Amino acid sequence: MDEGTGAGGLRDPAPRTVLFSEAQSGLRARATLLDALAPASAALLWDLAGAGLSFSAIHAIWTGPEISLPIDGAKALPGHDLRAVPVENATSYPQAGDVALVCAPRGTWRDGPPFDLVDVGLFYAAGGRLLMPMGWIMANICARIVDEDLAAAAAACRAIRTNGACAITITRDA
């Protein structure tokens, strides 16, 4: 069996990647979906990327080195049931390069957002922790920023921290 073929001689599919971009900071980070480890979460991120939309983004306050994209799930992903996304490949301590996904339907937390939240977090350095005002939470790690993009992505994320809120576009990487 040659390299790249799986059981029965079938070629393994190429990994899917998404692209996070933002002009002012120069952010251009490709992330490989972790389909085998977090299939439902990776599928949701792929669906978000398929729309090619831009989403408001901020540097997180509580979680350390993270750019957070808090998205209204019902608007961005009509017809998706966020309750159907299981806990998979989850952690409270994301690492540099992790793309974390939190699905929290309205009412998950007291004083939480008044919409069905899909939060995409780009962790760009060590020291990430998901300790929020309501306590510890877990996020599904559904993608990883490719190694060759991580240093530049970290610099761009630090620029976003300095510059303030922005709009990050998520697209499928061809």
Rank of each mutant, 00 (worst) to 15 (best):
S41D: 07
Y93Q: 12
L77S: 03
G107S: 12
G73Y: 12
L122T: 02
I58F: 07
D98S: 09
L44V: 06
C142V: 13
I58K: 08
L82K: 08
L69V: 03
Q95T: 08
D98I: 04
A143E: 02
D47V: 03
C103T: 14
P113Y: 15
M138S: 14
I61F: 15
I141T: 14
D47M: 05
E148W: 01
R144G: 01
V120N: 05
A156E: 02
L69S: 03
A43G: 14
I137H: 06
G127V: 08
V146E: 04
S41F: 06
A104K: 15
L150P: 04
R106A: 12
L69I: 03
A96H: 08
V87N: 06
G128H: 04
D81T: 00
W62R: 06
D147E: 08
L122C: 03
L48P: 01
C142H: 05
G135W: 07
I58P: 00
I137C: 09
I145H: 03
S92T: 09
E66I: 00
L82E: 00
S54L: 01
T108K: 10
V120K: 11
S92E: 09
A152L: 02
P78H: 04
L82D: 00
P70F: 13
L117D: 01
R106Y: 13
E148C: 01
A152D: 09
S41V: 07
G128Y: 05
A38R: 14
D116S: 08
I61Q: 11
A96E: 02
E88R: 13
C142E: 01
A152M: 05
G127K: 07
M138K: 15
S92G: 13
A126M: 04
L130W: 07
P39N: 12
P78R: 11
A152K: 08
D111V: 01
L150G: 04
I141N: 06
W136M: 04
D72Q: 06
W46D: 12
D111Y: 13
L82Q: 05
A38G: 12
H80M: 03
M132Y: 13
A40Q: 13
H80Q: 09
D47I: 00
G64M: 13
A154L: 05
H80D: 01
A51T: 05
A153S: 14
T91R: 15
F115H: 15
A40E: 13
M134W: 15
V87T: 11
C103A: 13
P70D: 10
E66P: 08
I61A: 10
G52F: 15
A156N: 10
N140T: 02
V120C: 02
A104Q: 07
W46G: 05
L101G: 11
I137M: 15
L48C: 04
G128P: 04
A154V: 02
F55I: 06
I58C: 03
I145V: 14
G79P: 07
G135Y: 05
G135M: 04
P113E: 14
P105F: 03
I61W: 12
I141S: 08
S68Q: 10
A49M: 05
G112A: 10
C103S: 08
R144K: 15
A126G: 04
A143G: 06
A38M: 07
R106K: 15
Y124F: 14
V118R: 07
A57Q: 01
L48Y: 04
V102L: 14
